[in-house]
Amino acid sequence: MGVVVELGKARKAVGSASALTTLVEEDMGRVNAIIIERARSHVDLIPELARHLIDSGGKRLRPMLTLASAKLCDYTGSGHVHLAASVEFMHTATLLHDDVVDESELRRGKKTARMLWGNEASVLVGDYLLGQAFKMMVDVGSLDALRILSNAAATIAEGEVMQLITANNTATTQDEYLAVINCKTAALFAAACEVGGTIADRPKSETAALRAYGRNLGLAFQLIDDALDYSGQQADLGKSIGDDFREGKITLPTVLSYRWGNEAERDFWRRTLQDGDIQDGDLEHAISLIERRGAGEATVERARDYGAIARDALAIFPDSDAKEAMLETVDFCVSRAY
């Protein structure tokens, strides 16, 4: 007998995006049931490790966007539920792989799977979840949906390689960084929304609009995370304040602070992010430099710009509860207080 993954109290409402949570509540119950079923295995380590990540309290935003997009397009079948579960498994697999590549020790305040079971187990369980995701896509029987999500999987992997190239490189440009998050984060947001319209067999103009909505929402979401990591206040980000700094990650606030700083400030960023020489008080100093140069504000402003584009993308759809929920989600992602 295999071990069963129990979601327990892991699923949390998406903050102030209450309209989205309410809109898809019933379908998300079905998605969670599928996740439990598909995470079964006679190899006990697989569901045990998967349960560790699921129980850490993710928001499930991406699968909820798949469900909402399908509702926006008046889809009446059941394929969107399986596609939403596929999207969540892809995201979970990505987190497992990310933590190995980034050598992360904590995720959402808990030890990462790699710290408990090792890098090899984390990578292989991530691969298992990806395999299950693609099996569910095949079960739905939509070649277009399979194409969209498989392309997203390849793009995410490309983003990981791009991030390796820019890792600890303080000379990274804005364009280079935005290209990384476009692949790593925005690609899955875009695909999650696009498949909702594709499964409903809507015209390309509408599926393209959903893709644009998801992509720009994903960029805004990631940039706000980047800014909040240096906000200087504790927040329920799904990570601790300063994680990016401690891991030497290059994000837009550090790119801008480095570019706009004086030579002494650039020396500080090279020592900490490039050389990995982080000393007591350095995080506080990093936060002060980002505040001094306005890099955090500039990052948030860029996120607002992407959020505005996401909102505009939905203009071709008639007013509905689904549209209102998706517009509210943009506001949540951009203005969330955590």
Rank of each mutant, 00 (worst) to 15 (best):
L149C: 06
G77K: 00
F221A: 02
A145V: 14
I156K: 03
P253C: 01
A84Q: 00
V180G: 11
L252D: 11
D305W: 02
V100E: 10
P203D: 15
L106C: 00
E158Y: 07
P47I: 05
I165F: 03
E247N: 12
A315N: 08
T254K: 00
M326L: 14
R211L: 06
G294M: 06
G141I: 07
L164C: 14
A295W: 02
V14R: 09
F332D: 13
L210R: 05
L130D: 04
T299S: 03
T254R: 00
V195Q: 05
A322W: 11
I309A: 13
R147W: 01
A315Y: 00
A264T: 14
Y306P: 04
S86I: 03
D319H: 08
S104L: 02
V43K: 01
L49G: 02
L124Q: 04
A212P: 01
M326P: 05
H52N: 05
T254P: 00
G141V: 07
T198M: 12
L7K: 01
G2P: 10
I156Q: 04
K184V: 06
F89K: 03
L65H: 10
D99N: 06
V138R: 03
E206A: 14
G232D: 12
G2K: 03
D27F: 01
V123E: 02
W269A: 02
R302A: 12
A325R: 11
A171K: 13
A93N: 06
E25L: 06
I316V: 13
A192P: 09
R311T: 13
A264S: 15
K9Y: 04
T66A: 04
V300C: 08
L61V: 15
V101H: 01
S142Y: 01
E291Q: 11
E6F: 03
S41I: 03
L83W: 03
M326I: 09
N169A: 10
S69P: 12
Q174F: 10
I181D: 05
G242N: 05
M28H: 05
